[in-house]
Design a binder for these strands. Structure first.
Lengths: 166, 166
DNA sequence: ATTTTACGTCAGTGTTGTTGACATTCCAAG
DNA sequence: CTTGGAATGTCAACAACACTGACGTAAAAT
């Protein structure tokens, strides 16, 4: 299991256990930075990350159903429901009964919901844009490649199915 | 704020709002993949991510104090204390009163703690190694650059201060 | 001697995950 | 057409883990 740094040439150096450990820690600290700005904003509204995720993916796919969202977010429907309920009560999300299948609820952001989504994603995009600018396009391409390779296959498929601009 | 894709040349394409949004989603899905294996293992022991983080950084810096850990993990002492207490009770972590400063508690992993840490980090390293292998060293270098750029400055300083193999 | 630091603990609260029970709707087999 | 099961979503209760605030102890610093 352990690959010794002494035995690794340049081409393998990035695969030593300690290099990998450093990569793990990089993910940990980076993800915290990545969520820091939205977390601050959400706190002002009394929301948490779960609300952010819901708002984000409803914005990404307006009219999506609760079941769809469940699959993407990877949580139980009960957990998602609590979040959706508060968002609906607060007038950020609208839930419309399906026309073809009345069991389904189609979810849409209201004007207020769109405004919150923009506030959150502006902050998060700014951090990502600054990071991208600091490192250049080649590094960004590598970044995206590694992230995709790290996803669980089912979600990687979903991720790749998203058009770059939809 | 919005940069239109139509106006962006090749060099700027990766900075459009939609490209950035895709990057945000990549982080979300990748981080979940990144934590999936340890989460499964931790569940068998009745632990959570908080325990994982504590065990990881105690292993990284044996003899670290509670206050040190607090700063690295970015949680309150009450929150960390709950986790440490269970780890100590279960015999995974040892807390030794400081010799120079008797107010401090120095934290060490026991044999059992080292075993759990290895089980967790083996799983996580395997995923990262597979991802690295799939994309090659150049992509990995870019990955690391972007992650570093995304960290909060204070943690980036700490991260960079860690030797690659300590 | 007083203040500050390091650590631990108790109590209370909020977000977010879980399971269990239940209502509604759709669909297909009898 | 009716009935039973599957799918969708809601409500209630509980657990994990974060937070704040208050308090106590011991030791170091001033």
């Amino acid at each position: 299991m352990a690959q010794d740094a002494r035995s690794g040439g340049e081409a393998l150096l990035f695969l030593t256990d300690e290099q990998l450990r450093k990569g793990i820690e990089a993910m940990f600290f980076a993800y915290r930075g990545f969520t820091a700005d939205p977390d601050r904003i959400l706190q002002q509204y009394g929301y948490g990350r779960a609300h952010h995720r819901a708002v984000h993916f409803i914005h990404r796919s307006p009219g999506t159903t609760v079941n769809n969202l469940l699959g993407i977010l990877g949580v139980t429907k009960q957990s998602l429901n609590r979040v959706l309920r508060t968002l609906i009560e607060d007038g950020l999300v609208e839930s419309r009964v399906g026309t073809r299948d009345k069991r389904e609820r189609h979810l849409f952001l209201t004007e207020a919901g769109i405004a919150l989504e923009r506030e959150l994603s502006d902050a998060q995009r700014k951090r990502m844009r600054d990071a991208y600018r600091a490192v250049g396009p080649d590094a960004v391409a590598g970044f995206r490649k590694v992230l995709e390779a790290m996803m669980e296959p089912e979600y990687r498929r979903y991720f790749k199915s998203l058009k770059e601009g939809e």
